[in-house]
């Protein structure tokens, strides 16, 4: 009789377990001021270094090129006082040159300044990095016995996996928000199609990317007893994944074989979606394609990842 009372009291639910485990993850990093500083510092450094050091629009800036104050061209002019010469004013010439520069920037990068282009690329890069690295925490959970404790309780196995995915995703979204805010302060130029609602779109895109990537990564990490394994995997795939995307440079100017790779890389779609939602004018059709691609990517990887982790946790 007493036993029955006890049994009724224990109602493990997916939601309870999921929230408790996610809360634990959040608490772990929110409790840790150094971690928060790192989370903010990391994108700042990347953005400062890459976004500002690769000053592409500087190439087209008159400041960096010596333009004489007057250029005299032979020709026939009908306006006095000059006879037989056209005199062009240097400042006017600089303006023409910069105008052309902007046009080139616009046509290549879709925006007039490389910093804006790059900062959004940084968001993608940080999302990918953070997602991968936070998946490693499950190796620690396993090594320190925490995972064993959790799976000896009746909590839903799915709650364990989903809480890890949620943790990766929330971190990625947090860092993306930090970069966006910092970039704005550092001179990111927002397009005229930007509204506050676009931020939700950005978060959705990041969520899709992060959920897919972290699921597969958690499935891999959960099998490793040593942190080195997932680290090696990250080292192996991270840079190629990032460079074979449109993070640093637009796809159109790449050689064909590379374009083919870039066009299947989900990071390309993430970056494009966020750029459209922030610094470029929205091209509805392209944006829809981005989201469809990201959704397919997320669905496939999440399903594979969850099935693999599930198999491990219940074996």
């Amino acid at each position: 009789m007493e036993g029955e009372r006890k049994m009724n009291e224990i109602r493990p639910s997916f939601l309870r377990g999921f929230l408790a485990l996610t809360y634990r993850e959040l608490k772990k990093w929110l409790n840790d001021p150094i971690m928060i500083v790192m989370l903010i510092l990391q994108p700042l450094i990347w953005m400062g270094l890459l976004g500002k050091s690769i000053n592409i629009q500087g190439l087209f800036s008159a400041e960096n090129i010596e333009i004489p104050s007057e250029i005299i061209l032979p020709g026939i002019a009908t306006i006095p006082p000059s006879q037989g010469f056209i005199i062009l004013n240097g400042t006017y010439l600089s303006r023409i040159f910069e105008d052309i520069g902007s046009k080139i920037m616009q046509s290549i990068f879709g925006v007039e300044d490389y910093f804006s282009f790059m900062s959004i690329g940084m968001i993608s890069m940080i999302v990918v990095m953070t997602t991968m690295f936070s998946g490693i925490s499950i190796v620690w959970d396993r090594r320190l016995g925490f995972l064993d404790k959790v799976i000896s309780t009746p909590v839903s196995r799915a709650a364990i996996i989903f809480s890890k995915i949620a943790n990766s995703t929330l971190r990625a979204i947090f860092q993306a928000s930090v970069i966006l805010a910092l970039a704005y302060l550092l001179g990111l130029r927002i397009s005229n199609t930007f509204t506050i609602m676009n931020i939700l779109g950005i978060y959705l895109a990041i969520f899709l990317m992060s959920a897919g990537l972290s699921s597969i990564f958690i499935a891999f990490s959960i099998r490793s007893t040593r942190v080195e394994r997932p680290m090696q995997l990250i080292n192996l795939i991270m840079m190629p994944l990032i460079f074979s995307s449109n993070i640093f440079f637009p796809t159109e100017l790449m050689p064909n074989w590379l374009q083919a790779v870039v066009n299947i890389n989900p990071i390309t779609y993430l970056t494009d979606a966020i750029r459209q939602l922030t610094i470029m004018e929205i091209n509805v059709q392209a944006l829809i394609i981005d989201f469809i691609y990201l959704s397919i990517f997320a669905t496939i990887l999440t399903v594979i990842g969850i099935v693999l982790s599930w198999y491990y946790l219940t074996k």
Binding site: G3, M7, S13, A20, K27, N31, G145, F146, D148, P154
Partner: peptide
């Protein structure tokens, strides 16, 4: 219906004692 005290220490070091117990409670629903 069982309680488990494993050979290793499995509590989360970054949480407090109370938070650890409450986490266990949530896992049991």
């Amino acid at each position: 219906v069982i309680g488990v005290v494993p050979q290793e220490f499995t509590a989360d070091e970054d949480l407090t004692a109370y938070e650890n117990i409450m986490l266990c409670a949530s896992l049991y629903g």
